[in-house]
Design a protein around this nucleic acid. Structure first.
Ligand code: ZN
Ligand code: ZN
Ligand code: ZN
Ligand code: ZN
Lengths: 144, 144
DNA sequence: TCTTAAATGTTACTATATAACAACACCGTT
DNA sequence: AACGGTGTTGTTATATAGTAACATTTAAGA
């Protein structure tokens, strides 16, 4: 999906959720989209400062939190970063694959595996909530 | 396993790996063991300072990194913390369950689910390495 | 218009983690 | 014992990440 298409889909998704994709939030989303792969909050902050002259950390963190909450971004804890969700619109549980060699990130649907995990967790009395899994390894290009 | 037993097992495991569980590393491990659940680096640092009068962040981070590398601790990225591995000695891939309500953490073996995930990742040409999965949800006590 | 809730701005701070280099300890060799 | 190499720890400084608290602005209804 191209950038404009993604923004349109994001807009729609926000409407459906009854939340607002304000100008600031849209700008932050576009800044994230402008990067390949994982983006860090302070990178977005720097970009935002370049575009608007001034911005403080809370401004960026609020927008990023909103976008994660709205399902447009995923947080990648292991890297203190964010990625664009590649499955906006479809209800999904993502499997985020991070290449430890080149840093490349991809996302696939993980529903079947999640089912197995859910069952196993329930044996411990533990109810896992919907979420994305992060796995590290080597991408095709890097494991020649 | 009690604390002394764990330290003995840790010692053995380090010997087998040809690495050294030095006095400092052992002390840090004991400090982690002294807590229930997730421990943070700066908590360990504070504990260490109480016991030794002085210590700096690198001292703690090095020891924690070593212990993770040795398979005695797991890092819980989502919480910026560490937990004691409950499966020292047995080759395992852990499933770390974090309760979002009470913060409680437990660890079970995740090998079956990992097999599913490994297969699915391979479809993308992605070779995931051995690792632990972290899932958040509600523990038995918290989901009355 | 008036009221109110949400969103954003602003300041200041807390928390987490690492770089870089110095000092020391250990181990095997001469 | 002296030497040299390697790994460990000490030390200082700094980089990076994230949040609390409150002021101000904006948008939506009544
Ligand atoms: Zn997604
Ligand atoms: Zn790669
Ligand atoms: Zn474990
Ligand atoms: Zn709980």
């Amino acid at each position: 999906m191209d950038k404009a298409g993604f923004i349109a889909a994001a807009d729609l998704q926000c409407q459906q959720q009854g939340v607002k994709l304000t100008a600031l939030r849209r700008q932050v989303l576009e800044l994230v989209l402008a990067h390949e792969g994982v983006v860090k909050a302070y990178q977005v902050l720097a970009d935002l400062q370049r575009e608007r002259g001034i911005a403080a950390p809370p401004t960026v963190y609020r927008a990023l939190d909103f976008l994660v909450e709205a399902g447009l971004l995923h947080k990648v804890d292991a890297l203190n970063g964010y990625i664009v969700c590649r499955h906006v619109g479809c209800c999904h549980e993502g499997l985020i694959l991070v290449c430890s060699a080149c840093g490349d990130v991809s996302e696939v649907d993980a529903s079947p595996a999640l089912d197995v995990l859910r069952e196993q967790a329930l044996l411990q009395g533990f109810a896992i909530r919907q979420q994305n899994l992060l796995l590290t390894g080597l991408c095709q290009a890097c494991r020649v």
